[in-house]
Design a protein around this nucleic acid. Sequence first.
DNA 1: ACGCGCTCCGTAAACGTTTACGATACTAGG
DNA 2: CCTAGTATCGTAAACGTTTACGGAGCGCGT
Lengths: 356, 356
Amino acid sequence: MVDGGKPRPMKGIRQLAEHLDISIGTVSRALNGKPDVNEETRKRVLAAAEQLGYVANQSGRSLRQGTTNVIGLMIQSSRETVENSDNFFLTVTGGLQSVFSRHNLDLIMLPCPHDEDPYEYLKRMVARRIVDALILSETQRVDKRFDLLAKAKIPFAALGRSLSGTQHPWADLDFDSVANSAVDRLVAHGHRRIAISVPTSDINLGFVFAEGYRRALQRHGIPYDPALVIRAQSSEQGGYQVADELLRLEDRPTAVILIYELMAIGLYRRVMEAGIIPGRDIAVVGFREAPRAKFLQPALTCFRTSLHDLGVELAEILLSVMPAYSHFYPDTNRQATWPLELVPGESDAFYLPSAK
Amino acid sequence: MVDGGKPRPMKGIRQLAEHLDISIGTVSRALNGKPDVNEETRKRVLAAAEQLGYVANQSGRSLRQGTTNVIGLMIQSSRETVENSDNFFLTVTGGLQSVFSRHNLDLIMLPCPHDEDPYEYLKRMVARRIVDALILSETQRVDKRFDLLAKAKIPFAALGRSLSGTQHPWADLDFDSVANSAVDRLVAHGHRRIAISVPTSDINLGFVFAEGYRRALQRHGIPYDPALVIRAQSSEQGGYQVADELLRLEDRPTAVILIYELMAIGLYRRVMEAGIIPGRDIAVVGFREAPRAKFLQPALTCFRTSLHDLGVELAEILLSVMPAYSHFYPDTNRQATWPLELVPGESDAFYLPSAK
DNA sequence: ACGCGCTCCGTAAACGTTTACGATACTAGG
DNA sequence: CCTAGTATCGTAAACGTTTACGGAGCGCGT
């Protein structure tokens, strides 16, 4: 052995260059797949890099080419989110990464602290240029963050819709038609007094959900009663409160649609305390996680989808608005409502006598 | 108005300097609170920076001073994690951030893709120098990642213990004494044949949990039966499978300890299918989330803790091993087992006839 | 022999900061 | 008036990359 074959800690591309006895520029070109470099030397460079464990310093690279190869997913982890979001984000993240990794992009999650204004937090992250592009989640009905990103000219997409940021790219669960189908199904079972739960925050999905519900009622000629739209946290506790509200109503609904399946746990509990059996005395339809719903007693009728695939779609949408990658995804539809599939359970299986 | 008061997009500290008509070095010193700068000019600089919306480019800063002011929390989001971890991470993250933000450190989450080896992923992240320090989670019993970090001389702490990385700093839930207390309580109720669920993966908490269980049995003179230690996913599905296993045993246990409270949903379901009523025919004790457990029917006896405060503790532990911050937390205990508190429910309230 | 094009490689500038160092002005003490 | 000391500021180097540019070597056609 001639000299140090032992991989001592890499300092930078310079060390690698003088170890190979070629210029630093050539090494860089070799590593980055640039055309004008001999295939023979490229192999040597790659081998040496692998052996010495060299990985390009991100700060240097970012500084030079103004790009970080990192995509940020901002999550607010608001109180409500912490209660309800489950592994929603982790699952979507899996889908996102499966696409990003093909382009050597890394995904990081940016959790906005509870006590910081999301807008300010985002502004800070944008200014620090720590990411090349951003994915926003938990979109509000009006959400100033879109204007911020548009003004900063940072590519972005959203996990969820918003009225702000005209025509911004997004992918979102089809809350609208879920509410629609749920009403349809319940009406077909003879129900006409149907309650619905919506989130307490101004998150846009609540509005979309409620609009789908309202539209379905109208289609069936059922009058809209605001008292049946119940705001509650998307948690077991929230489900308990929903049931509480329902029991308090004089003309008690015979069915209820929950925006989050775990709410059913609290709701079941509360109505049973009142001697009411879910699936027999009251119909319940939930949303979003079929495997979980199956284990409730009675099994919750629910809507299922692949959040992973939603992540894939969203990743492609984002890349299609990033100049450096848009040629890979030229004809992408920039706004995707993600379908869900009904999974029948026993929680709404009974028919009201009034139905024929 | 003299000239452009309108904040046009900031290019860098240079623009800011010539706008103020002072040197770039002084601006930098002013912004960073260095001593040798006139208080008067510092005020002017800060005001101008605020007005023009200048924020230091992170790449430039990182390149120069070799520090990023970012802490990474690596999460693996393995299949099992996605099923079970819930908002565990988001809640702990809140605690972490409440400490980090005091030091102007940002926390990002690094989700390792399912199809990538965690070790390789971590190596990549370390080499790219995207973070100053790292927090590992979902620690395996033997976990090579600790050696990697030690070798790379990157400050780190772990959310969870491991046998690797001798004396590495960590904070962890006290799985040991939870299992202990659960057994104590069940034995006091007259149970002697007590099953326990552990994770399917090699995550260390499963071993710790099982050890506490085993130790408690020994203390009570109850023989250890390996058939009663049931490996299952920490999910509703897993709970269902646990119940399945229990029902298949010839000498059926009268009590079961679950490592994750949502497993109770599946377990309840399965045993009720067999005509067995939880809380009457079989005692169930769960773990980790009291507010959720309360809404199960019967309410699950459970152990509660503040994951937020666990995050706070972990953050302080990490900072205490970071040279730049260690003087803030000089006498921190570097290894913290986090206590949990029993929340009695109805799922284990009954006493076996054999108990006096 | 000459010019041209091609392949491959080295040189050096540039990215935006921070910071060591030196320069300047001013104050105080003699 | 001179000097030392202090407060404040400007200058320039350095961090590790990427990349525009030019140069060397070579083959080939005229």
